[in-house]
Structures are given as C-alpha cells and as structure tokens.
C-alpha cells in the first residue's frame, strides 16, 4: 500500500463498532442477557446494531418489552412488525398485570404516569427469566445522572444504582462479573448523542414508527408543552383540545411524552430541526424529568433504567 493510504474512519463507523463490541461482550460474558425494547428510536437503533453484531447467526438474547399500557398504538404495531420481520423472540410483560397482582397504587393526577411503576414489572421480569444483563438504549448526553453511569452498570438485587460504588471502566475492557441476584444494565450507545442517533438512522435507512414524523393530532397545551389526547389523561374544565401538526422527538408513554410542533415529514427535515433547536431532547419532551433537578438520579437509584 502507498503512503497515501487513509486509515481515517467516520465517527458513525467508530460509534457503530464500539456499540457492536459492547453487544458482543454481553453475548460473551453473560448466560441470560436480554435487550430491553421500548419501540423508541434508541432501542430500534440497538436492534439494528444487534443484527449487525450477530447475523448471520441468531441474536443471543430476546427482545423484552415492558408494556405500560400507555403506549402509542403506532409504537406497538411497529414493535410487533419488527419482531416478526427479524424472526427473533419478543417477550412482553404488562405493567397492568403487575398492578393487579401486587395491588400497586396507581398515581393520580392529570397525567397519571406509570413511569415509576414499570420498574416493578421490569424487576419481576428480570427475576422471572433470570436475566443477568439487560441491554438498554440510554445515552449519556440525555441527562446529568446518565453522564456518570458506566457502560456496564452493576445493579443490586433491587435494581438499585449506587453512583459511588461504580467500577472503573478502562480501555474497552468491561467487567461484567456479578454475584447471584445482581444484574448488569448495559448501554451500548452511551457515547452517542441525539444527533448521532438521527444521523445514523438516516445513513442506515432504519425504519421508525410514524409518530416520529409530522402528523395531525389532537393535543392539549399544558405548561407550554403539547400533550396528546388519550384515554390515559384527565381533561379538566378549561382544557382546550386543538388539532396541531406535531411529531415526537422521543417516544415514551402517552402520559409523559410531549409532542413538538413540526412539519418535518422526513429524516432530513428532522435533522435540520434538531440542529437548529435550542432545547434539549428530554427538556422538550419529557414531563417526568421536570419534577426535580435530580429526578433521574433518584429513579436510577430505585432500579429505573
């Protein structure tokens, strides 16, 4: 080879290779891993990466969806079609069932969110199948507490995260050894930003649920955010429901995810909007993070993803 040989690699190739390496470490180090699939763009990207990591073989883990019962129907349809298309196992566990079995109390209020309750279902599911590692699509740029979490994040038997007892993570060497009862949450796209994910989705032509693109929807305005009209929220006197053209920047529950007004009908438009936006992803769309400065830190300590 000549001296001009270029060894430069694109940042998306580097992020992709890092994520694939992490997924293969999970396969190599754990007996019973699972990939937590929410139907959102980050976990859809994870599935795409997993296929690259293990095809032409089968995925060495099932997809697991913790269904809060408050999902966008479009996300559920997408989930089922994806699982069928790739021919991999999909395990669904319902928060509704946990509420019934364990007689949990649902939070009340206008936007009664099952966000906290899904931790119960997640921990039950981990126990039911004996999962020792759960792969998730969380990113460090999302939130301050996430910025400090390891790629292999050890959780105690209650799923709890202790930021002061994290293992040092050196080079690309991941220590996944755990005691019985503990499990590891693994975040292969830790080092990706929101924009990285969108650029990757564009490059790889990854399909997404339709709600990520501009569509007409009945919404109500609440503290400057657009909340979808659904059977899961309470309408009060004075609430005005309007038809708006919106899209979703993140996809969580219908009760805790806000829409943004947008006419972006394709990936290029979305990337343009995100590049120009002056608000962060969670700040714009997540009602659940506004509770306190340390909302995520607290939830993680209690077993949340």
């Amino acid at each position: 080879m000549s001296n001009q040989h270029s060894y430069q690699s694109d940042y998306l190739d580097q992020l992709e290779s890092e994520a694939i390496h992490i997924l293969r470490e999970v396969a190599g180090q754990f007996e019973r891993p699972a990939l937590l699939f929410s139907g959102g763009k980050d976990s859809i990207t994870l599935v795409h990466l997993a296929l690259k990591a293990f095809r032409p073989g089968r995925l060495p883990f099932p997809l697991v969806h913790i269904d809060t019962g408050h999902n966008f129907p479009e996300a559920l349809t997408f989930r089922d079609e994806l699982a069928a298309r790739i021919g991999e196992r999909l395990i669904i566990r319902e928060v509704q069932e946990t509420i019934r079995q364990r007689q949990l109390t649902e939070p009340g209020g206008k936007f009664a969110s099952r966000n906290a309750l899904q931790t119960f279902t997640l921990l039950d599911t981990i126990e039911e199948f004996g999962f020792d590692a759960c792969i998730g699509g969380a990113r460090r740029d999302e939130e301050k507490a996430r910025a400090k979490e390891r790629i292999f994040s050890i959780r105690d038997e209650f799923g709890g995260w202790d930021p002061k007892r994290q293992r040092p993570e050196l080079w690309n060497t991941y220590n996944g050894r755990i005691h019985k009862g503990e499990n590891v949450r693994v975040f292969p796209i830790s080092n990706w930003t929101e924009l990285d994910v969108w650029n990757y989705i564009r490059r790889e032509k990854i399909g997404l649920p339709s709600i990520y693109f501009a569509h007409e929807r009945e919404v109500l305005s609440y503290e400057g955010q657009w909340i979808a009209l659904s059977p899961f929220i309470r309408l009060d006197d004075g609430d005005r429901v309007e038809k708006r053209q919106v899209r979703y920047r993140t996809v969580g529950d219908m009760t805790c995810t806000a829409a943004v007004e947008s006419s972006a009908s394709g990936i290029d438009d979305i990337i343009r909007e995100i590049t120009a936006t002056r608000t962060s992803e969670r700040g714009e769309t997540r009602i659940d993070d506004k509770v306190s400065e340390a909302a995520m830190e607290d939830r993680k300590k209690n077993g949340y993803f």
Partner: peptide, 13 residues
C-alpha cells in the same frame, strides 16, 4: 458493519 470488505483496520468491529 454488515458489509463485506477487502480490508479493515482499527477501531472497526
């Protein structure tokens, strides 16, 4: 990355 190539180098998987 799911494609067959003639050559590969660090840091690729």
């Amino acid at each position: 990355g799911g494609r067959e190539v003639e050559e590969a180098f660090a840091p690729l998987s």
